[in-house]
Write a protein that binds this DNA or RNA. Structure first.
Lengths: 196, 196
DNA sequence: CATATCGGAATGAACGTTCATTCCTAAATA
DNA sequence: TATTTAGGAATGAACGTTCATTCCGATATG
């Protein structure tokens, strides 16, 4: 096994175990077993379990953003872009349920909470497509006159709930249903006296 | 200290610690300390940590339902009842942030997931005000033609996100904002070609 | 009334287990 | 051979739970 393979195997094993059983259901010994390496070997690649977890999160985030950027165009109406982005998010996580589960675990942990806090207070990065989109809609009066975090809750809340339900097997999502759901989200954020 | 006081002290201590630090951040020894009892004493009242946790959840659920039933009337339009119920849920958890945090922890744990599964498959209980409300709206074509779980996601998703944000200090919710948020949720679920 | 006896409630040190991390030996590589 | 990489047993801290003992109010006894 090549060096870089070992690292990848460790990341993959930890990702799967943590997504499925949570941080505390994924002991390092089990991660090592699944990765096909010795327990000590993990520590040649990652300083600690915390560092490993943070690294996995960071890699996932990169993949998600790359995938969303793919085929996203800044042209098109606000509505079109909103629908496109929301649909892509849902599609991505349906195809990568493990990523969703891991990110949820992470975001519900203390690390995730402080991360969100930092980002909310900080300036929007290029990466924050959704944030830019919503802000543009607020400024242009296409969206309801509400604070940004509220729009986030209105747009993202249902998406998260939906993905959770789908992954747990509570709903069977198909393209038609996704389309309807995303349009319903748009109804939630858009100004009702404006067209569309 | 009376007997019943001890039990209550234990429940309160565990509730607070778990809400703040999660299940794994609330060792029984710490619960005992905060409750002002010996570690062994907890086991005179609760068979195990799991049982203690389940008991707390059950007590909280009872309180929430009681509080929501208070002042809820089956008369009034669907919209009125939707707005009322959503508003009350937000108000309750803003006033009882600890309850919200505990319930979230529980719902994200394996116990919570199987609980949800059982309930979703089972018949709606009298208690499930929201479920009845949404079903009525679907049947009466006042709401969009979508499966029930999707309506749950559209209506509840934003409420959960909003409460999370408020409790973490990411938004400052006041009555006016709550009103607007709840109306936006209604816009999400209602048929857009129908009035109101 | 004073004292002795009793029984269940409360206690916290001790136990066995689990876990992240370390450490030392073996294997691979150069 | 010298150096780097891997392995997994060893370590010690932390945890849930147990249990022999203590405590305390009630009851019986003188």
């Amino acid at each position: 096994m090549k060096n870089s393979d070992k690292r990848e195997e460790i990341v993959l094993a930890a990702l799967e175990l943590i997504a499925e059983h949570g941080f505390h259901g994924a002991p390092m010994a089990m991660v090592a077993d699944r990765a096909g390496v010795g327990a000590g070997t993990i520590y040649r690649y990652f300083e600690s379990k915390d560092v490993l977890i943070a690294e996995i999160f960071s890699e996932l985030e990169k993949k998600v953003v790359e995938s969303l950027m793919q085929g996203y165009s800044r042209d098109g109406s606000l509505r079109e872009r909103f629908i496109y982005l929301s649909t892509m998010i849902i599609r991505y996580f349906m195809a990568n349920a493990i990523h969703f589960k891991f990110i949820e675990q992470y975001m519900n942990s203390p690390y995730g909470v402080s991360l969100r806090r930092e980002r909310l207070l900080g300036k929007a990065r290029d990466i924050d497509l959704f944030r830019h989109l919503l802000q543009e809609g607020i400024d242009g009066h296409a969206l309801k006159d509400l604070p940004l975090p509220l729009h986030f809750a209105l747009a993202f809340g249902p998406i998260l709930s939906l993905l959770r339900d789908h992954i747990l097997g509570f709903v069977e999502l198909d393209d038609a249903l996704i389309q309807k759901a995303v349009e319903a989200c748009w109804d939630g954020v858009r100004r009702q006296d404006a067209p569309g």
